[in-house]
Design a protein around this nucleic acid. Structure first.
Length: 173
DNA sequence: ATGGTTGCAAGGCAA
């Protein structure tokens, strides 16, 4: 089984690229992040015409995750991580696909100060860890795929891109 | 060298 993950950064603007990628790569399952579309704006019919069943958790402007399965509908087992009732972000959706539990996640980046968002990367990591432990306690195979927003060092090498947490300066090594 | 891009959605914000 071929399982893929794709941060689409706006599914409306990225739809043609997504369809081309699906046709070329033919994943059995695909996890999408950053839909940046409200629930009613996901192009469900177009994706079904492309041969994929889909479940998704939309959100206006930001975040949003979806799971696609080729030739079938994903059997949804959860949306949202457990724990924080304040977490209204759409960042996790999970399905049972051919006997494999697949979680599609989009964790917050580490730049957001707590004052700007109740949902921090650490909060989400804690919720994810707790949920992952529960999944691992089951007998079934588990895959947690997506955008973890984790870097290997304290200083992010943004590849020349703008770092919004750095007072409008270039981020440098 | 004090800058730059993209997407959402309709101005500013997030990444």
């Amino acid at each position: 089984m071929k399982i893929a993950t794709f941060n689409v950064n706006g599914i409306s603007a990225r739809l043609s690229a997504l369809l081309r990628w699906l046709a070329e790569s033919k994943p059995d399952a695909a996890c999408l992040q950053e839909l940046k579309a409200p629930q009613e704006k996901l192009p469900e019919a177009t994706l079904r015409e492309a041969g994929y069943g889909v479940i998704w958790h939309g959100q206006k402007s930001w975040n949003g995750v979806a799971m696609l399965t080729r030739g079938a509908d994903p059997v949804e087992s959860r949306r949202g991580l457990p724990g924080d009732p304040e977490d209204i972000h759409s960042r996790y959706i999970e399905a049972l696909i051919n006997g494999v539990r697949v979680g599609c996640l989009y964790l917050p980046n580490g730049n957001l100060a707590p004052v700007r968002s109740l949902i921090t990367n650490c909060d989400s990591c804690n919720a994810l860890t707790k949920h992952a432990e529960e999944l691992l306690a089951t007998a079934e195979p588990v895959i947690l795929a997506g955008d973890y927003n984790v870097i290997p060092t304290d200083i992010e090498d943004c590849g020349g891109r703008f770092d919004p947490s750095d007072n409008n300066h270039w981020c440098r090594r």
